[in-house]
Design a protein around this nucleic acid. Structure first.
Lengths: 168, 168
DNA sequence: ATAAACCTTAGAGTCAGGTCTAAGGTCAAC
DNA sequence: GTTGACCTTAGACCTGACTCTAAGGTTTAT
């Protein structure tokens, strides 16, 4: 069943003859170690669409894209389980209803939105700290995260929360 | 040195007589277990500003705010080391230069900005998936994350990246 | 004054997510 | 045809961040 490796390491993939990558090449390309790639495969997140007769993994460009998706989702902070769930979102035309798909997707989207909001709150705090510190127009008295947060709170209270929507 | 606990559990804190919290009360307030609070203390992230004679921890409102900061930073995805670094940003008027502080802060701010950008990219992908799936104007052919990503890429290429800034 | 519900510490256990090792097979070049 | 750089697997090990346990002291209500 498995296609045999020809010289130049090309499989008959999508009839375009794009060279497939060995695991160390994929590793170099994605910045994930070969250990990690095999680990992800063991956990069902990725796979190599071909194997040589000897069992060597060969990755197509589709495989590469999937690996890149996993890597960036990990980087964002999704767990392997989350990613697994994200990747499993798929309508198979009969058994799975579209409602299932949109439910999961909407839940994940909400998670993402929440995380963005929290990060923006942290962004604001850091920016205030930066502005407050030494030479900023806010004087040099606020010089730690906690002081910046307190200064932020005071300002909010004084000004009656004019522009809403920061944090908890 | 430690102030003795009076009835009603109030210490002479900021001359306002705000009741201080015991560890289980702080736990209830923050949603962090008492184990976790002691664990954070062991790692230098938080502390109780008072201890009773018997060694019970008592937390002031300043302590509480610090704990809440740690909790939300953890939730965002900062490691305990990151948080430790964030909390240590502080000018002590002589030894530490303001440049040090702003350097660290700017670095963290950049981290936060990067993470926001990545999350926004994921947000967009999920939104496309949602739009593409079953009944959306984009037809029902794209029904998985990977297909949504590919559809997104194609659209970007076709339209020559009109609005930039959705990474990798 | 005793029970129930707290609190203390030191240290062991757990889980996710890698990371590494051992023991061996494969391949390209010389 | 052998060397060195690859590849394979199973499984042991590591780190971060909790989470729990044991053994005991304290506080509050009855």
């Amino acid at each position: 069943m498995a296609l045999i490796r020809s010289e130049g390491r090309e499989f008959e993939q999508t009839s375009k003859r794009i060279p497939m990558l060995k695991i160390s090449e994929l590793s170099a390309r994605t910045g994930l170690s070969t250990h990690t790639l095999r680990f992800y495969e063991k956990h069902g997140l990725i796979s190599a669409s071909e194997r040589s007769e000897a069992g060597y993994r060969y990755y197509s460009d589709t495989d590469v894209r999937r690996v890149e998706f996993v890597r960036s989702a990990r980087h964002i902070g999704f767990s392997l389980n989350d990613i697994s769930e994200l990747l499993s979102i798929r309508v198979d035309k009969s058994s799975h209803s579209c409602q299932d798909v949109t439910d999961i997707t909407e839940a994940k989207l909400e998670e993402v939105n929440t995380r963005i909001a929290e990060l923006q709150s942290m962004q604001q705090t850091l920016q205030i700290l930066l502005d407050s510190c030494c030479g900023g127009p806010e004087s040099a008295t606020h010089c730690s995260i906690m002081e910046a947060l307190e200064a932020e709170q005071e300002r909010e209270i004084e000004q009656g929360l004019r522009s809403g929507s920061h944090g908890r």
